[in-house]
Amino acid sequence: MHEVEIKMREAARTLLESGKVDLVLGFEQGSLPLRMRPCFARNAGATVGLVWNDFCANNLAAYLPGLFQKPADVRGSWTAPTVAVVAKRCDARSVIELIKENQIPRQNVVLIGMPCQGMVDPRKAQEAAGANVTACKMAPDKQVELTTAEGGVAMSPREAILADACLECATPAPQGADVEIPGPSRPSAANPYGRLSEFESLTARERWDAFVGEISKCIRCYACRQACPNCYCKTCFIEQSKPTWAGVGDELSDVLLFHIGRIFHQAGRCVGCDACVRACPKNIDLRLFTRKIVKDVQELFGYVPGMSLDEQPPLCTFKEDDNESFITHP
């Protein structure tokens, strides 16, 4: 892991020193246990703070669309920056979708592809240790050592504290990056939609109840939307005022409408990076629902988002023999 970090830092430093990029988006030490956080390195000196470990969870692609928009208060000419992104494969897949959706110019992005062994879910680590975890260290035999604020030490299998999204990840190894950092990645999950089978086995009524039960926890803070690389709409439909599609409050129908709108907007686009789930302060399992939509699109149109730059997204194409089986009549 440490070697990967050193090589990533070197790559970042070289890119900035050579002037190939203006900015490296990576990770730095966070302020909380088990948390790294986004880092904006604008010169070679700043790359010493870049880190790579099991806690680099954020999908940094979320910052990209904004970086390529001229700020509202800048008058006159403005040049878009060239940005290198330290990217796990899921993040890289987001970048590819964003390029295809014309949100970021391909020539202005350098993908630093990271090998990925899955990211630790701090909530699971807390549960495994049963107390305030202050540190998490790799131990032999795929175990982790969790130190608590009270000075206790708990051991846990590493797999047991990884994020659900990582356990189901079909694409952990880097591919097609501009700069690929060598290192071991976890094996691809045999069934990327494993957790869905239970949900899919429910009746329509039960699925609706499960959806409503989960979504009713929402406080409409929009953390899921803001953390999601795909949610770059200049004005989200839920905030439009002419016309107004929904009320502003936490009435269930309004909350449901927001999430139904957001989830459907993820059809054929969500890479399953888990950013929405991580960002949610109420632990709402949003990924379950977006995965369902993504799986449907894969089954209907054979499209998996973010795999290549050449493949046309299903929402942008029309073929006469497109599958219409999902169109039902009342």
Partner: peptide, 8 residues
């Protein structure tokens, strides 16, 4: 720069 602009 890091702020995502959410309301958490």
């Amino acid at each position: 720069q890091r702020c995502l602009g959410c309301g958490v």
